[in-house]
């Protein structure tokens, strides 16, 4: 069953065609990756899927509901985390989570905060100010925030960008487990090709605002005649869209 369907999304910023006819589908329990060089349109695409940017044309449907017309219902069932976002720096981690639990209208705030605290192993951080956290700790708190409402679709922009290899590996394992065991759909962007290879069922390669190739990591490597996703990335980034 499709959780997310985006059809022919287009966005221009002045003369720049940031996104040009992107269509993609994410199914239940599926982990989908959006790859592409800087400026390819990944973040703009994600932001259109979240309603932060209004597309010039095209549509976004989640859970069978049009995002523009059913914003509150749709966003209740989705969550987002990005390495570049901040949190109110003066608040303690528990206060941040308490606040977001209310913003998602959760019934039992304390229980959900305790649940995600245990899942992300952030118990020792609860009484620390978010402004005092390391970037790795901050990422884990952002992910805890993103799991508070038990989202059916989790959208992650560079989820492990600020984590050391060990923490990154643990977060990847957690995200895969969450997706496989609970049927959550994940849509992620990353510049870590190994991460994408290991996590994603389907990968969409973006270049200059267009999806230039889609498929599994192995399928894409075969399509481009290279050995792995890293080489696919380099080929697309350096040589542009193949014929």
């Amino acid at each position: 069953m499709a959780i997310l369907e985006a059809q022919s999304l287009t966005k221009r910023f002045g003369p720049v065609h940031a996104v040009n006819g992107v269509s993609l589908t994410v199914g239940q329990g599926e982990i989908t990756g959006l790859l592409g060089p800087n400026g390819a349109g990944k973040s703009t695409t994600l932001h259109m899927l979240l309603g932060l940017v209004t597309p010039d044309s095209g549509s976004v449907t989640m859970f069978g509901l049009d995002l523009q017309r059913h914003r509150t219902e749709v966003l209740s069932r989705v969550n987002f985390s990005a390495s570049y976002l901040g949190l109110p720096g003066v608040l303690h981690v528990r206060e941040v989570l308490n606040s977001f639990a209310r913003l998602y209208a959760l019934r039992d705030v304390r229980k959900r905060v305790d649940d995600v605290t245990e899942l992300l192993e952030i118990g020792p951080l609860l009484k620390r100010r978010t402004g005092d956290l390391s970037s790795g700790q901050h990422t884990r708190v952002q992910l805890a925030k993103a799991l508070l409402n038990d989202p059916e679709l989790l959208i992650l922009d560079e989820p492990t960008a600020a984590l050391d290899p060990d923490a990154g590996e643990r977060i990847r394992a957690l995200l895969v487990t969450v997706a496989r065991e609970t049927g959550k759909a994940l849509l992620i962007t990353s510049h870590n090709m190994r991460e994408v290879e290991r996590m994603c069922d389907t990968i969409h390669f973006l270049s200059a605002g267009r999806v230039v190739a889609s498929g599994s990591a192995a399928g894409l490597a075969e399509h481009f005649g290279v050995v792995d996703l890293e080489e696919v990335f380099l080929k697309v980034a350096r040589e542009g869209v193949p014929a």
């Binding site: 979240l50 309603g51 932060l52 914003r71 509150t72 219902e73 966003l75 209740s76 989705v78 969550n79 987002f80 990005a82 570049y84 976002l85 901040g86 949190l87 109110p88 720096g89 977001f100 913003l103 998602y104 209208a105 925030k145």
Partner: peptide, 12 residues
């Protein structure tokens, strides 16, 4: 605090 996006992706 660069928290505005976090708020705008909630159902608020």
């Amino acid at each position: 605090s660069r928290n505005l996006i976090n708020l705008h992706v909630t159902p608020v």
